[in-house]
């Protein structure tokens, strides 16, 4: 028994070492950092403990801007992407021909490099001295004056960001919802059809309740993912997000850690913990709501 036990631990050892060094220890350490005031990464000294770091970031206009941007992004893209994904998956499940082809194409953005494709979106939306850009030309057909979506007004930048975010997150949602829709038993539909139920009513009374657990899973992971937005934003607006007024909370954390404005792991830790608290709260609220509205079967 003794040697068997040792063997078990031996197999686990690499995993434990890696997780301990790069997951568990950092998790504890980040809380320590966030309470150390005036931490200096060069000399590794600090001169006090307390809540100063939190108070600093909560009064930092850049942080408040980042929080505002993140919330706008979350509130716009989570419902929008979930609804579009629901519509597309429903459409996919009702067709037969070309279905596989459509599914493959819809999933394509998932495997692409966010930074690289973000550049394509940038040139599509950008207005430069040479050209108004393709999107502006299309908008021009409807009589809309060209706007620079990349370095122009705030709402225009936010629009591109939301658009790109939806483009990036849809593949995952479509995939999950398509398989959820496929798993609803035909019997329910056949029964409803015999009763002459209208399609919309079938959708609302049968399909939606049956896929509600997956839908809810998507909403929760969608919220978590959107709150952590960062690389999509960098892809569109470059690394100096504060100057572009487009920073997100995660972007603020990294800016505090590294780069021209970096070197403040304590502020970064405090910001990361604030983000974590927000995400945790939202997730708990989501779970409470889901208890009421989600059908988990028997």
């Amino acid at each position: 028994m003794e040697s068997k036990s040792a063997k078990g631990w031996l197999y686990l050892l690499p995993a434990i070492l890696f997780l301990g060094a790069f997951l568990v220890y950092p998790l504890i350490d980040v809380f320590v950092y966030s309470f150390e005031e005036g931490y200096n990464s060069a000399s590794q000294t600090f001169f006090g403990t307390g809540l100063y770091n939190y108070s600093y970031i909560l009064h930092d206009p850049y942080f408040l801007q980042a929080v505002r941007n993140t919330f706008i992004l979350v509130i716009v893209t989570v419902p929008l992407s979930t609804l579009i994904a629901l519509g597309i998956s429903y459409g996919l499940s009702s067709i037969k021909a070309l279905r596989e082809l459509y599914q493959t194409v819809f999933f394509l953005p998932y495997v692409t490099n966010t930074l690289a494709v973000g550049l394509v979106f940038m040139i599509l939306f950008q207005k430069t001295a040479y050209t108004d850009g393709l999107v502006n030309l299309v908008l021009g057909l409807f009589g809309i004056t060209p706007v620079d979506f990349i370095t122009g007004p705030y709402w225009a930048k936010m629009f591109v960001l939301c658009f790109y975010t939806v483009w990036v997150v849809l593949p995952f949602k479509i995939l999950i919802l398509t398989s959820a829709l496929a798993s609803v038993s035909e019997d329910y539909y056949n029964a409803a059809r015999i009763d002459g139920t209208r399609p919309f009513r079938i959708f609302r009374k049968i399909t939606l309740p049956m896929i509600s657990p997956m839908l809810f899973y998507l909403i929760i992971t969608g919220f978590i993912g959107a709150f952590k937005a960062y690389s999509d934003v960098v892809a569109l607006f470059g690394t100096n997000l504060n100057a572009a007024e487009m920073n997100t909370i995660v972007g603020y954390v990294y800016d505090m850690l590294y780069g021209d404005s970096g070197g403040y792991p304590s502020y970064a830790s405090a910001a990361a913990i604030v983000l974590f608290a927000i995400v945790l709260t939202i997730t708990c609220i989501n779970l409470l709501i889901s208890k009421k509205h989600v059908y988990y079967g028997r």
Partner: peptide, 29 residues
Amino acid sequence: LRFKGRDAVFTLFLSLMMIPYELVVITNY
């Protein structure tokens, strides 16, 4: 393999899945 503490460690591992990357990246850096 069967050994003492296996299930406890597994539960611990599962709970590690919930740690957001943003929290640990600071110390790793």
